[in-house]
């Protein structure tokens, strides 16, 4: 992916090491899919049902979309050496705004704009706390994380909120609809990915973000407005979460602020890390982050299909994630392979 261009590469590394970052998450994804194929016969079947592609592999891509969008935004924020814990709350608020404004009878295109506007406001708030006031990102975004779902509930209460469900051809079309048998949300996600990629990789912003994440003081001295860059990163992240919120809310056509997208921040951070991002900042791998989200969803779908009792789900997920991260760790790989190589480094 493009991310490798800007990645500082130690001189001592041999050229073939360059491949590795992309290889390990893809290998993990392949391994999960192969094991699922053995455990659940017919896992790879894809057919057309109701005019749309239908099958487990489609489900994985389909269900990974919201997580992938959130993770893309998270990758940008993590690139600044920050973190955004409030993405789940941003989704809850977005969903509550959608249900509320539709109940109020606004045109649905306006509702979509309002929902994304609400998400942007969440980003501006986080950006203000982190870049404006200089509060530690984990604490700054924790504020919205704990209050956001409450705000969502309050929005539901604006119209009674006992049955916050709605019907919307436009929003459901964007989320659960299909175009040429392919789910619409994939086109939507691809467009957002492309837009983000252009902003990050075809303007100087990506370089600025990575320089701020690498060393904010040095970036500042070099003439980069570190505070502005950080602010923009949080707004971008919230906007990505807002789109995920639109997809998730339209998916179930209901606003459920208490439980929608619960723990999505953790999945998003995990996707960034599986994709080779470092919480120490300074790197943004957009493409690999999407692979990371696919790894997580492939795992979730595989467990659901396998018929494993639900008590084991999270434990199995944790073990597999640990395995993937071990695969990615240079140190762990070296420790495992060095006795067989017969030469010490």
């Amino acid at each position: 992916m493009m991310a490798e261009q800007t990645e500082p590469r130690p001189v001592a590394m041999r050229p073939r090491m360059k491949l590795h970052r992309a290889v390990w998450p893809l290998l993990a994804l392949a391994a999960i899919l192969i094991v699922s194929g053995i455990v659940s016969p017919g896992f790879y079947n894809i057919r057309i049902v109701e005019g749309r592609l239908f099958g487990n592999l489609i489900d994985i891509v389909y269900r990974a979309t919201p997580t992938a969008l959130v993770a893309l935004g998270m990758a940008v924020v993590i690139g600044t050496k920050g973190i955004d814990l409030s993405v789940g709350s941003t989704i809850a608020i977005t969903g509550a705004v959608i249900a509320w404004r539709i109940q109020m009878g606004d045109p649905h295109l306006v509702v979509l704009m309002m929902a994304l506007g609400a998400a942007t406001l969440c980003g501006i708030w986080n950006g203000f706390l982190v870049a404006g006031l200089g509060i530690q990102p984990i604490i700054a975004t924790l504020i919205l994380m704990v209050s956001g779902r409450g705000i969502g509930l309050l929005i539901n209460l604006l119209y009674g909120g006992t049955n916050p469900s709605f019907e919307s051809a436009l929003l459901q079309g964007l989320s659960t609809g299909h175009l040429m048998s392919i789910p619409t949300r994939l086109f939507l996600a691809a467009a957002i990915f492309l837009a983000l990629w252009l902003i990050i990789r075809r303007t100087a912003l990506g370089l600025f973000i990575e320089s701020v994440g690498g060393n904010a003081a040095a970036a500042n001295l070099a003439g980069v407005n570190a505070r502005l860059i950080t602010f923009v990163a949080y707004v971008l992240c919230a906007l990505c979460a807002g789109w995920a919120g639109v997809i998730m809310t339209a998916d179930t056509h209901t606003s459920d602020p208490v439980s929608v997208a619960m723990y999505i921040e953790l999945d998003a951070i995990l996707a960034v890390v599986i994709g080779g991002g470092s919480l120490a900042g300074g790197r943004i791998h957009l493409g690999m982050t999407v692979i990371g989200a696919l790894v997580i969803q492939a795992l979730t779908t595989s467990i659901l299909i396998s018929g494993l009792p639900p008590e084991y789900n999270l434990v199995v997920k944790a073990v597999v994630v640990l395995f993937v991260l071990l695969l990615q760790s240079d140190n762990a790989r070296r420790a495992i392979t060095s006795p067989f190589r017969g030469r010490a480094r």
């Binding site: 998916d251 929608v260 997208a261 659901l304 639900p310």
Partner: peptide, 24 residues
């Protein structure tokens, strides 16, 4: 087949999607 949907609409939808595939 039995799975946890965490008492949520989202969870119920995901689990049923999986059941639909695993039970043809």
């Amino acid at each position: 087949a039995t799975q946890s949907g965490d008492f949520t609409t989202e969870g119920g939808k995901k689990v049923m999607e999986a059941f639909i595939k695993s039970t043809n």
